[in-house]
Computed example of a mutant assay.
Amino acid sequence: MELFRLEMCYLTFNTVNSFSFLFHLIIISFNHTKSIASTTIRSYPIGKVGYMGHNAVVYQNGGLQIVFLLRGYEIIDDIKEELERQCPGVSCADILALAARDAVFFAGGPVYDIPKGRKDGTRSKIEDTINLPSPNFNASDLIKMFGQHGFSAQEMVALSGAHTIGVARCSSFKNRLTKVDPNLNSEFAKTLSRTCSAGDNAEQPFDETRDDFDNLYFDALVSGNGVLTSDQTLFTSPRTRNFVNSYAQNQALFFLDFQQAMVKMSLLDIKEGSKGQVRDNCRKIN
């Protein structure tokens, strides 16, 4: 009954508020992202392995999405404030997880459901970010990091597809431009150089449709147009290349594997009972 109440509260909130309100939340994207958005799409999936852990403390991949998420974190505050008026007692962790789910759908991605009723963590420490996946990771590094949390190489690649939404900042990929990167398309390298000419904070979309959840991120990798080292390595490495090719050729397969991995991610390190709390303010513990 409690979980049903939480879902109905959230559905009511979505109905009352504008579509763009939640959509912009995930285009924080996971965030390098990331989104999930962000997020949040990217912030939620990749972040949960490296940064979020149901603390509803938003960290991001290689530091990039920390900036993105904190810049958009006021949206979480607004959602929390509105929900407390209409349906008090919804955790920040649930808000972020459900917002990530909805952002995927609003951006054109698959529909999926996740369990509700998680609590917020009782720890919010910047030092917890030391284990974030770096934008300079290779496929072996990523497989190892995700594997430590029970995710297969294929699930890792599917979750990385959250980069189909959002942008990366020049500071996270400019190291690829200081010397010849054999895995970087030479014409795309010129595009990245032009982006970086505007400074470290200049933004480069991960693919041609930065606001759409589709499989063009994988098309970009096949073409050597991966923005980050940790993107392009997914195609370069024999351990993950077949997954990239499959998703580039079959968007429905990507959607299916992504939603299944997201559901699995939503069950990671859930705080229940005395192990967690429902924060009054998402930015700090009670």
Rank of each mutant, 00 (worst) to 15 (best):
E74N: 12
E74G: 10
E74P: 07
I76Y: 08
K80N: 05
E81C: 07
E84P: 01
R85D: 04
P88V: 04
G89L: 08
V90M: 08
V90W: 01
V90P: 01
S91N: 02
A93Q: 06
D94H: 08
L96G: 03
A97Y: 00
L98C: 06
A99R: 07
A100Q: 13
A100R: 07
A100L: 10
R101Q: 13
D102Q: 15
F105K: 12
F105T: 13
F106D: 06
A107V: 03
A107P: 00
A107R: 08
A107C: 13
G108P: 11
G108W: 14
G109I: 04
G109F: 04
G109K: 07
G109H: 07
P110Q: 05
V111H: 13
Y112I: 03
Y112T: 05
Y112E: 06
D113I: 05
P115D: 14
K119D: 09
K119R: 15
G121M: 13
T122P: 05
T122E: 14
T122G: 09
R123D: 11
S124E: 14
K125P: 01
K125Q: 12
I126H: 10
I126S: 15
E127Y: 12
D128C: 12
T129Y: 14
I130H: 13
I130W: 11
N131C: 07
N131Q: 12
L132Y: 08
P133T: 11
P135Y: 03
S140A: 09
D141Y: 00
D141A: 00
L142G: 00
M145P: 00
M145Q: 12
F146M: 11
G147S: 03
G147N: 01
H149T: 11
F151R: 00
S152F: 04
S152D: 00
A153W: 01
E155A: 02
E155F: 02
E155M: 01
V157C: 02
V157L: 02
V157G: 05
A158H: 08
A158Q: 09
S160V: 02
S160A: 10
S160H: 09
S160D: 02
A162S: 15
A162V: 08
T164S: 15
I165P: 02
G166K: 04
V167Q: 04
R169W: 03
R169S: 06
R169K: 07
C170P: 08
C170V: 08
S171D: 07
S171M: 12
S171G: 03
K174Y: 10
N175W: 11
N175F: 14
R176F: 06
R176W: 07
T178Q: 10
T178Y: 09
T178F: 12
K179N: 04
D181K: 00
P182C: 02
P182D: 10
L184H: 02
L184V: 05
S186I: 15
S186T: 15
S186C: 09
